[in-house]
Design a protein around this nucleic acid. Structure first.
Lengths: 148, 148
DNA sequence: CCGCTTCCTTGACTCATTCAAGAAAACGGG
DNA sequence: CCCGTTTTCTTGAATGAGTCAAGGAAGCGG
């Protein structure tokens, strides 16, 4: 996706187009499940002087309008992704933190309707699978930590 | 559940029985989805001088042996509960943070097997439903914040 | 090109959680 | 019942993701 596309995407959500936002959107697009620090590093490759606050603000704004989704498995910091609205879920490694997407194949949204909704207006079901990734299963020691 | 029962529970998991651990276990048992601060306050009703560190340590230890489970919906601090191994899930209010248990009625663990496991050894599927609780649906302003 | 509004920079700050060192308590063996 | 070893608790400081706030800069409609 080119810069112009990101600009158009921002505009279509009624957001002002700034180079910081374009860079943040690009960073999230090219680094699925990246945490804020990774996004900051990625953004600084093209804009060396962005402040961390601009990145936090952009991520919040993009999340608010739905261009980006934030996920936060227990024990992890916030991570961001662009795949939205396709009802996919996540597989998280307990050992190294690796996160991979899994498509929801159980036909129409498997867990979208809790047995008894307690009067809640449910708008989303988030499924997180916990386990050990291939690398951590083999090496008993397990790879370092906090992969993506 | 009485103190002796909590002691027995700790012993059956090969843990030393300390009044701090008994109190923490009791606090989690009586305050489902409580965050650490709430647990500390609850514990201090019977043990005014416990350190916060003792509570953090106990919660980690209890979680490690499986007597307690920790959950952490995005944007929330860690919360603890004693209902474990019964495959129940959570309903979280986006507005006030209220967390409610929902039983998993879709027969045998609905989402326990991702379509493609990417080589992971999956041991748990965690489902979180997001929405608005009854109170936040009615009062357009929505109740304060961070309920349980 | 102007001006209003929104966004970014800078720098301080919050607060959940962790780290570390020494004191205290648990509990198996004598 | 007491001792010694090991684990746990207390105390106090530190870490780090994320937030707050004020002023300067940039976006964009006119």
């Amino acid at each position: 996706m080119h810069a112009e596309d990101y600009s158009a995407t921002l505009r279509s959500s009624s957001l002002r187009v700034t180079k910081q936002r374009v860079a943040v959107l690009a960073a999230v697009d090219t680094h699925p499940h990246a945490d804020t620090e990774t996004v900051i590093r990625s953004v600084r490759e093209s804009l060396p002087d962005v402040s961390h606050q601009a990145v936090y603000d952009s991520l919040h704004t993009l999340t608010a309008v739905g261009l980006v989704r934030s996920i936060q498995p227990s024990g992890s910091v916030a991570r961001y992704e662009r795949r939205i609205g396709d009802n996919h879920h996540h597989l998280v490694c307990r050992s190294c933190g690796l996160i991979v997407d899994v498509d929801c194949t159980v036909g129409r949204a498997p867990c979208l309707s809790p047995s008894h909704d307690h009067g809640f207006a449910v708008d989303q079901a988030e499924v997180t699978f916990w386990g050990l990734c291939p690398d951590c299963r083999s090496g008993s020691e397990g790879p370092s930590d906090q992969g993506d």
